[in-house]
Design a binder for these strands. Structure first.
Lengths: 343, 343
DNA sequence: CTGAAAGCGCTTACAG
DNA sequence: CTGAAAGCGCTTACAG
């Protein structure tokens, strides 16, 4: 079954034309007789011909490979990942979408070197969660490789090719929901890194609490060892003279830290403290009580970013930037029991 | 800065030798004068020469690309993934390791077609969690592509190239620990798919409870909608006439389902029910109470599988199969309070 | 030890 | 509309 795969010459011979004609027919280049073209296409199909990528690349410069550049992940001791689950769901979606469109998806380490990135010969890239003046973004620019981003580079307002979560709408609906549930003092736990996502959420939070005339407290959380930092931050907030009655924990693992800090103080979620997570996950849904969460929609973000990149590669001007919905799923952790049943 | 990158001809010219000599010097082929070689190498370095992958591939057949074939993940409605977090940590490690050794890592969709897989032109692959007579394994064999596996294909005992978790030792230490904590009836919730990992754990569990003279109950859990199935299974077990006093939930999300089922019945973890998860995660550590968990060591598994594959690609006979430690991290969820402080 | 030359499988001016 | 030929940047027999 490992018969050597057919080349363009085999197709040419079988169809009784030259390799030039085969190439033209298959790539829709030049003028070619309609009948000839369909015959060539049929022959190629019959023989199971698929162009050799290396050869095509060598001659034409295209590799049909794109890269996904995730932020630090994997074996990093201090993992700033907002949500590993979200990243993998995103990667899965992009992998499938890319392959469907005849692109292969390369997984590139976060600290890739310039040479390494150049060597792999990618046609384009998707940068996930760039920090301010992200090194990966600069590398891609130097190498002249087209790219789109999931969340923008907050230090580079000149780059429009990104998809972003709608933090404004998300914060508005979350604050509104919390107010409905009786919250007066709301605390936002936000990752202390240069992510545009975090910056957006922060601003949106401030605006929303102001609109609703609530007291808003922003607490930046270091991202070395997610759980403990969030736990510490929550502990501090809960021990304050006037403690918050609601906490929005932007990163998935933050929410768990908050829950632990609350439970150790005999504070009950949701009766004494309303809790909302900024990242939905299988764990948020399965926790006790189930944690209300904003849905980052990694599949949709991945799809949009891929689409944007492929437009770029096709020489088109994509619609950009794009905003993705960031909806709130209300669960038990933010429903006061006296109102229970209202969901 | 986008000066056209140097080719082997540029190096040859600069070093005053032929391209053949450059190729030989750089690839350690043939006999070559030591002085000449070092001069060529120095010149290549000075010019920043890096061989064009496409050209090398076209001629030599090597692509310096390997693929990671994860099981179903990402945008699948029913996600049988044991632990998305583990997969991403594994992928991250393999990506870094591959790039360090001049290989690029391709992320391949779980349902890749034969043609798609052939087209991408990979030198080798790592198959993660094959099911019995896994389709991906068969594809790779047909295409004559070397591969290693993380966990074996339980239907293919002829394939030794895999790394596996030490389920025997893990179950022994877990059962021993549970016995110490006073467990008498232990229930194992195991994913109901053809994963060798699950089969191993099941057998190891049976053997371990027998050795310790405990009552062992095995409950297969469907993997469509992880949390609910585990919840249902746990509910059933806990409502039985003689309910278990300890549950080992093999998949990470299973543990959350068990905790919820227990809590709804007024059963306290760990006082009324000891709980151990088969997959460690940020959520297991941050939960209340913190969940005891077996550590799947995705980094170590990924590293070993990559090493095995590269040995194979290098024409060597790797040490295989390999067994990776699967240690238990004891936390509050499996420590009876009357013994608290013993950790 | 060193080099000229063929060739991997395509794409693309260029001629006809 | 069609095809012969050059060439992308390497590796590898083969000769010297």
């Amino acid at each position: 079954m490992s018969a050597t795969r057919p080349t363009i010459r085999d197709v040419a011979a079988a169809a009784g034309v030259s390799v030039t004609t085969v190439s033209h027919a298959l790539n829709e280049k030049g003028r070619i007789d309609a009948e000839t073209r369909s015959r060539v296409i049929a022959t190629a199909q019959r023989l199971g011909f698929r162009p050799n990528r290396a050869a095509r690349n060598l001659r034409g410069g295209r590799t049909q490979v794109i890269a996904l550049l995730l932020p630090e992940f994997g074996n990093e001791p201090h993992n700033p990942a907002l949500s590993l689950e979200n990243y993998l769901r995103m990667a899965g979606t992009v992998a499938v979408g890319a392959h469907t469109r005849e692109y292969a998806l390369l997984l590139v380490p976060p600290r890739v070197t310039r040479e390494n990135l150049r060597d792999v010969g990618i046609d384009g890239a998707i940068v996930v969660d760039p920090v301010v003046r992200d090194a990966r973004v600069q590398l891609l620019e130097e190498l002249d490789i087209p790219f789109s981003m999931i969340e923008r580079d907050a230090g580079r307002d000149d780059l429009p090719w990104h998809v972003s979560l709608d933090a404004d709408a998300a914060m508005e609906s979350t604050i509104e929901h919390l107010e409905t549930q009786g919250a007066g003092r709301v605390c936002l736990l936000v990752p202390d890194v240069g992510w545009a996502y975090a910056l957006n959420a922060r601003e949106a939070f401030r605006a929303a609490v102001a609109r609703h005339d609530l007291k808003g407290i922003v607490v930046p959380v270091g991202v070395g060892g997610l759980e403990h930092s969030a736990y510490d931050a929550a502990a501090l907030a809960l021990d304050a003279a006037r403690r918050p009655d609601a906490i929005i924990a932007l990163a998935g693992p933050f929410a768990a830290g908050v829950a632990r800090a609350a439970s150790e103080r005999g504070l009950h979620v949701p009766d004494d403290l309303l809790l909302v997570s900024g990242a939905d996950s299988v764990h948020a849904r399965a926790a006790t009580p189930a944690v209300s969460a904003l849905d980052m929609q990694p599949e949709e973000c991945g799809t949009q970013a891929l689409d944007m990149l492929l437009e770029l590669l096709g020489g088109h001007e994509p619609r950009a930037p794009r905003v993705v919905d960031y909806p709130l799923h209300v669960r038990a952790s933010s429903l006061r029991r006296r109102w229970k049943g209202s969901e």
